[in-house]
């Protein structure tokens, strides 16, 4: 299987190309430069691998939650490529990608992902590995106050994402003894969006270009 994945949900911008089990990724910390970088990253990966976007089997993107403008850049890029190629799309949770990264690089099997959602809130989700190396959600994702995040029932959990930095204290207070450690420096990466995308696509979970939409989690945007 050949799949292209991107993530533009945070200040980081990344693209990854999965070809039959092998993944190449380009990653850059580039606040407000996603529009300038993402297509050339995609093109470089394809050129290096000697494949055109038309010969891929699918696309995946970090559909959010995250920074609204970044999410729309990612969705827009994937909509354009998917419509032009007729490829199926897997919208991947950026919180799940964050957890998948912790699994892939540090073998964390139970992960609490928290991204700074501004306005005193975090984007929040809990993910656990069910054996095949793929993280799955165990709670409904949400945007909420750090003091009110929903908790998984039991076990030891590892915290990732900048929410653990910005709201470290209230989150630790809330999560208490469930927490085994934190790595706030992680961002969602296209590498992990690709892994989750390949898994979903192999189960037939791709959607059409116009269904490649952001998931904001916050719908109250007018104060």
């Amino acid at each position: 299987m050949k799949l292209l994945a991107i993530d533009t949900s945070t200040d980081a911008c990344s693209a990854a190309l999965y070809i039959d089990g092998d993944i190449k990724e380009l990653w850059e910390l580039a606040p407000r430069r996603h529009a300038e970088l993402i297509l050339s990253m995609i093109d470089r990966l394809c050129q290096d691998a000697g494949v055109g976007v038309r010969s891929l089997d699918g696309l995946a993107f970090g559909r959010g939650p995250g920074a609204f403008t970044g999410l729309r850049i990612g969705a827009g890029v994937i909509q354009g490529i998917a419509f032009g190629t007729n490829l199926p799309v897997v919208p991947v949770s950026s919180l799940a990608a964050l957890a998948q990264g912790a699994m892939r690089e540090a073998n964390r099997e139970n992960v609490l992902s928290a991204l700074d959602a501004r306005l005193g809130e975090v984007y929040w989700g809990a993910y656990a590995c069910r054996g095949n190396g793929i993280m799955r959600g165990v709670l409904a994702e949400c945007a909420c106050l750090p003091s009110e995040v929903p908790l998984p029932g039991h076990g030891r959990w590892f915290g990732v994402g900048n929410g653990w930095q910005v709201y470290g204290e209230p989150l630790r207070l809330r999560v208490g003894a469930l927490i085994s450690g934190v790595d706030p420096g992680r961002t969602p990466r296209a590498h992990d969006v690709a892994l989750l995308g390949v898994d979903a696509l192999s189960r037939g979970e791709g959607v059409s270009a116009e269904e490649a939409l952001p998931v904001y989690l916050r719908d109250q945007v007018v104060r």
């Binding site: 976007v53 038309r54 403008t69 729309r72 890029v77 354009g80 032009g84 190629t85």
Partner: peptide, 19 residues
């Protein structure tokens, strides 16, 4: 509006790339 403009730009530029 910058956010609104970026929607058309991202879809338009990427569709052109794919085509």
């Amino acid at each position: 509006l910058i956010g609104a403009l970026l929607v058309g730009a991202s879809i338009g530029r990427s569709l052109a790339y794919a085509l």
